[in-house]
Amino acid sequence: MPQLDIRDLHAHYGREPVLQGVSLSAERGEVVGLIGPSGSGKSTLLRALVGLTQPSAGEVLVDDRRIDYRDRASQRWLRERLAIVFQQYNLFQNMTVLRNVTIAPLEIQKRSKAEVEALATTLLDKVGMGHKRDAYPDELSGGQQQRVAIARALALRPEILLLDEVTSALDPERVNEVLDTIRALTREGITMLIVSHEMAFVREVSTRVVMMDHGRVVETGPPAQIFDTPREDRTRQFVSRILRH
């Protein structure tokens, strides 16, 4: 039984269809890389999974349980298992680094202060931000903010982590520090869906790669298949254009 099972998911922005029947599943501990041209629906898929964009049809199952995106309780249950990290980090600007990481576990999940603070310290050290725990987000670089955002997502103890182009807004010299952080996470067995334009990185960390275009899945396979011997023309086209750069 897959941990995350997406069946024929549809979504619209206004009247524009952005997801046109996406089916995709992830086993526990899998790292799924999502690639495809801009506007292919990768980010929308992640937003739909956490309920920021209402799916218009199809279903999502987590641990074999069907998610009702119109029901608050079901959404709450989902978001305790599914965490997302955004392209623009979206740290709370009015809170310190530590508060950003601890607020949801403490006040929403109602976990104990001692446990949460110990975990936050561990996580911040792990992403290399332990020395900045009392800083405010606007005092940090983009790469530093993104590493804190990853720690914030992990503090929820999610079973599945969604990463939405987490390096796209960063200065080139800041990209690697964030990729290193994610690379370390992939070795810990947490299920991940990674949307990224860093092809070398996707190839390196993914157990499986999904190629999307026009709101549909074009091809799915192990990294070697997608990048070296793609079966679909569209994938070949996209991969060769990207890798030529």
């Binding site: 956490v50 309920g51 920021l52 709450r76 978001r79 305790e80 965490a83 997302i84 955004f86 623009q88 979206n90 740290l91 709370f92 600007q93 009015n94 607020i103 949801a104 006040e107 929403i108 999940q109 914030r152 929820l156």
Partner: peptide, 25 residues
């Protein structure tokens, strides 16, 4: 708006998002 989205995916209710995230900013 992204501040609200971040609050939403962390399971903040509307009132908590207003008083702890939006209003202070």
């Amino acid at each position: 708006r992204q501040q609200l989205e971040a609050a939403e995916v962390l399971n903040f209710g509307p009132a908590r998002a207003l008083f702890q995230v939006v209003l202070p900013q």
